[in-house]
Amino acid sequence: MHIDLSGKQALVTGATAGIGLAIATGLARAGAQVTIVGRDQAKLDQAQAAIAQASGRDDVRGIQADAGTTEGCQAVIEQQPEADILINNLGIYGACPFFEINDAAWEEIFQVNVMSGVRLARHYAKGMQARSWGRIQFISSESALNIPSEMVHYGVSKAALQGVSRGLAKVLAGSGVTVNTILPGPTRTEGAQAMMAEMGKERGVTAEQMETLFLAENRPSTLLKRFATPEEVANLCIYAASPQASATTGAALRVEGGIVESIA
Score class of each variant (00 low, 15 high):
Val118His: 04
Ala42Asn: 14
Thr35Arg: 08
Ala130Gln: 15
Ala54Ile: 12
Arg119Lys: 06
Gln74Asp: 15
Gln129Lys: 13
Ala67Thr: 15
Tyr154Asp: 04
Ile101Asn: 03
Val76Trp: 07
Gly72Glu: 12
Gln74Met: 10
Arg135Phe: 01
Ala42Thr: 15
Gly155Lys: 09
Ile87Leu: 06
Lys43Asp: 13
Ala95Arg: 13
His153Leu: 03
Ala47Asn: 03
Phe99His: 10
Gly94Tyr: 05
Lys126Tyr: 00
His123Tyr: 02
Phe138Leu: 05
Glu100Ile: 01
Gly56Tyr: 12
Cys73Gln: 13
Trp133Leu: 05
Gln64Phe: 04
Ala67Lys: 05
Asp66Ser: 12
Ala47Ser: 14
Leu44His: 02
Leu44Arg: 01
Val118Cys: 03
Gly134Trp: 01
Val114Ala: 00
Gly155Asp: 06
Met151Gln: 15
Thr69Phe: 06
Glu100Asp: 14
Val34Tyr: 06
Gly94Asp: 11
Gly72Leu: 14
Trp133Pro: 04
Asp58Ser: 15
Ala47Phe: 10
Ile77Glu: 08
Leu90Gly: 00
Leu86Ser: 05
Val114Glu: 01
Asn113Gly: 01
Phe99Arg: 09
Val60Gln: 06
Thr35Pro: 11
Gly117Lys: 05
Val60Phe: 04
Val34Gln: 03
Ala125Gly: 04
Gly155His: 07
Glu82Lys: 09
Ala50Met: 12
Gln74Arg: 12
Ser141Asn: 03
Gln53Asp: 14
Gln64Pro: 10
Tyr124Asp: 03
Leu145Asp: 10
Gln64Met: 14
